[in-house]
C-alpha cells in the first residue's frame, strides 16, 4: 500500500480545515474498510488520510425530541443491534444485518457506508481509466455489466453499493454536513447524485465537507416497513436488487407509502410514482403485482443484466408483502 500521512483532528472543524480542495490528496477515513481497499488498488492515493476516530461524540446515537441522531462514526453492528432502531425503524436494522460480514460491521461505520465508493470492477481496477476516474469511457457499457444499473444508465453504469441508504431515505432521514462555513442539513434523498451531476462522485459532498450525522424523524417510525434484497452469495455479497418500503396502514388501507429501490441505479431511487399508486388503496397481492410491474417500466437494462428486471419485480412484491405482515 502506498504510504500516507495521517491527520488526527479532535474536532469536526479541525477535520474540515485539514481536508483540502482536492479529493485526490486528502481523504477522510472512518473505519477504513473501504478506503484501504481503494488505496491498495491504487484508485485512491491520498497524501494525507484524515482519521475521524479522535473526534468525540461521532459514535453517539442520541434520542432527541424530534427523533434520533446517529453519529457518522457509529459502527454498523452497533446500529443493527440498537433496540430502538430494531423496534421503530426495522427496515434499517434489516438492511444493516445483511451488509457485508460481522468483521466488516464491527469496524465499518454509518458515514463510511453511505460514502463508500462503487464496486464496479472497472472502477476498482487501476488499469481501466474509466469516466468515473476522469477518463472518457464507461467500460461497463459494452463490457461485463451483469451487476450494473438498469435505471439511469448511459454515462456511468455503477450501482450505488450502500443498502442502508434505502431504508434511511424511506424514513425521511436528513444528513448533517459539516463544511468550513458551518453545518447544514439536507434530505438524504438529495445527498446522492446521478452521474450527470458529477460523474466522479456519488454524493453532493465537496472535498472539504464531512457527513457528520444522520437524523431520523420520530414521525417515520413504522413497524410496517421492510428492507428486502437478493444476493448471489449468502454472505460477503452486495445486493443484486433491493427495495425498502414503509407503509402507514389503517386496517387494510394504505394511507401513506415510501418506496426506495437500491442496487439498480447509480444512486438509491425513491419512486414517487409507486408511492402514489399505493396510497389510498387496499392491501392486496394484485395491487403489489401491479406496482412491481409499474416499477420496471422505463428500465434500460444493459447487455447482460436484463435478468434484474424480473428479479426486481419479485423483490418489490415480497418487500411489500413482508411490510404488511409485520
Amino acid at each position: 500500500m502506498k504510504s500516507f500521512k495521517m491527520a488526527m483532528p479532535k474536532t469536526l472543524e479541525g477535520a474540515v480545515k485539514v481536508l483540502g480542495f482536492d479529493f485526490e490528496k486528502r481523504q477522510l477515513m472512518a473505519g477504513g474498510t473501504d478506503l484501504l481497499g481503494c488505496v491498495k488498488e491504487h484508485i485512491a492515493e491520498p497524501e494525507v488520510v484524515v482519521n475521524l476516530k479522535g473526534i468525540p461524540h461521532l459514535t453517539d446515537v442520541v434520542k432527541t425530541e424530534t427523533g434520533v441522531e446517529i453519529g457518522a462514526l457509529v459502527k454498523l453492528d452497533d446500529l443493527a443491534n440498537n433496540k430502538e432502531i430494531q423496534q421503530r425503524w426495522p427496515a434499517l436494522a434489516q438492511a444493516i444485518a445483511q451488509t457485508a460480514t460481522p468483521q466488516i460491521r464491527n469496524v465499518g461505520t454509518v458515514g463510511g457506508n453511505l460514502c463508500q465508493r462503487p464496486r464496479c470492477w472497472y472502477y476498482r481496477d487501476e488499469n481501466y481509466h474509466c469516466s468515473k476516474k476522469g477518463g472518457s469511457t464507461c467500460y461497463a457499457l459494452e463490457g461485463e455489466n451483469e451487476y450494473h444499473a438498469i435505471f439511469e444508465t448511459g454515462l456511468c453504469q455503477i450501482v450505488h453499493p450502500s443498502n442502508m441508504a434505502g431504508p434511511l431515505i424511506a424514513y425521511d432521514a436528513l444528513a448533517e454536513i459539516q463544511s468550513p462555513q458551518g453545518t447544514r442539513q439536507v434530505r438524504l434523498e438529495k445527498f446522492f447524485i446521478s452521474p450527470d451531476m458529477n460523474i466522479e462522485r456519488e454524493n453532493i459532498l465537496k472535498p472539504n465537507e464531512i457527513l457528520s450525522k444522520i437524523l431520523i424523524p420520530n414521525s417515520s417510525a413504522n413497524k410496517n416497513s421492510c428492507y428486502y434484497e437478493t444476493r448471489e452469495k449468502q454472505s460477503f455479497d452486495w445486493a443484486l436488487c433491493g427495495t425498502s418500503v414503509s407503509l402507514k396502514l389503517n386496517g387494510k388501507m394504505i394511507q401513506e407509502a415510501r418506496v426506495v429501490l437500491n442496487a439498480i441505479a447509480p444512486r438509491p431511487i425513491r419512486r414517487l410514482d409507486l408511492e402514489a399508486a399505493l396510497t389510498g388503496k387496499k392491501v392486496s397481492k394484485r395491487l403489489f403485482k401491479k406496482v412491481a410491474d409499474m416499477a420496471v417500466q422505463g428500465a434500460t437494462p444493459l447487455s447482460k443484466n436484463s435478468y434484474k428486471i424480473e428479479l426486481l419485480k419479485v423483490v418489490i412484491e415480497r418487500c411489500l408483502s413482508e411490510a404488511t405482515e409485520a
Partner: peptide, 17 residues
C-alpha cells in the same frame, strides 16, 4: 491552523507519518 481570525481556540491538528 492559519485561519485564526474566526476563533481563539483553533485546533492544532496532529499529522503523523
Amino acid at each position: 491552523p492559519p485561519q485564526t481570525a474566526s476563533s481563539q481556540n483553533e485546533e492544532e491538528v496532529l499529522i503523523l507519518g
